[in-house]
């Protein structure tokens, strides 16, 4: 049972390091949405006000576009995304037994391009990859985040958890110190939030653009003056997976709007 395993793992972590507080209880988890002002919430809630929808529209067009040497579109294999992609984004990153590692949605899209379309991979954080990710993510809006329970997934989650709880950088901070222990506080003027990845890719007002969870993670890592892994790095994929596991059962909001 996953819950028993979770408690055991949590205890192991407490024993290994010095976190002041353990994980956030399930009942106290909050989306970044809950930390936002009413006006920013309203931007997310209204599809004609949510700029992330512009990327969803682009993604819809890309879904139907033929690409690569195979001259196939996503739709040629998967048909109507509202049926075939429903729930998919809510269960990524996922462990790929074939590859022996966790794969995020962006990487999954690119492996489909390589294998089925015989097309070049889309660059990480490129407009097209964000658009397809947002379009696929949109098909799971309102669904609960789910994470598989198998040995490969569990191992990858553990690896992500180790990254989350590791003190690092010149400022010697771990993710957990802010986002588990201090989410009710304010860093300068801004709420710290719990770091629940409920709306990715998000339209971040700061960016004036859509961006991936990895882009957001890299912002925080830059802040604590640590070595920032490249986009797509396995360490970041596993951190993403851990964060999704931490947010399991919470509702996917893609495309989210955040300050």
């Amino acid at each position: 049972m996953i819950s028993r395993w979770r408690i055991a793992a949590a205890l192991a972590v407490i024993g290994a390091t010095f976190p002041a507080i353990a994980e956030i209880p399930m009942s106290e988890r909050k989306s970044g949405y809950d930390f936002m002002g009413k006006q920013t919430q309203a931007m997310q809630d209204d599809d004609t006000a949510n700029a992330g929808m512009l990327w969803v529209l682009d993604g819809e067009a890309l879904w139907k576009r033929h690409a690569g040497a195979a001259n196939k579109s996503c739709a040629d294999c998967h048909g109507d995304a509202s049926a075939s992609m429903k729930g998919v984004a809510a269960r990524y990153p996922a462990f790929s037994p074939a590859l022996g590692r966790a794969v995020n949605l962006e990487q999954r899209i690119n492996s489909c391009r390589a294998e089925r379309q015989q097309a070049k991979p889309l660059a990480y954080e490129s407009k097209d990859l964000l658009a397809l990710t947002a379009f696929i993510g949109r098909q799971s809006r309102g669904l609960p985040i789910t994470v598989a329970d198998d040995a490969g997934t569990r191992k990858a989650i553990e690896s992500g958890r180790a990254t989350f709880t590791r003190r690092q950088g010149q400022l010697n901070l771990s993710c957990a110190q802010c986002h588990d222990d201090n989410w009710s506080g304010r860093l300068a003027g801004a709420p710290v939030t719990q770091g629940q990845p409920t709306g990715y890719p998000i339209y971040r007002l700061e960016w004036q653009n859509l961006g991936s969870l990895q882009r957001r993670l890299r912002n925080c890592l830059t802040g604590i003056r640590t070595i920032v892994p490249a986009l797509g790095a396995q360490e970041l994929v596993e951190l993403e997976l851990y964060l999704m596991w931490r947010a399991r059962g919470m509702t996917l909001e893609t495309p989210g709007v955040r300050p």
Binding site: L187, A188, V192, E206, R215, R218, T222, G223
Partner: peptide, 9 residues
């Protein structure tokens, strides 16, 4: 206007 936390380069 508040400052957003965790900006990027």
């Amino acid at each position: 206007v508040t400052l957003a936390a965790c900006l990027e380069e």
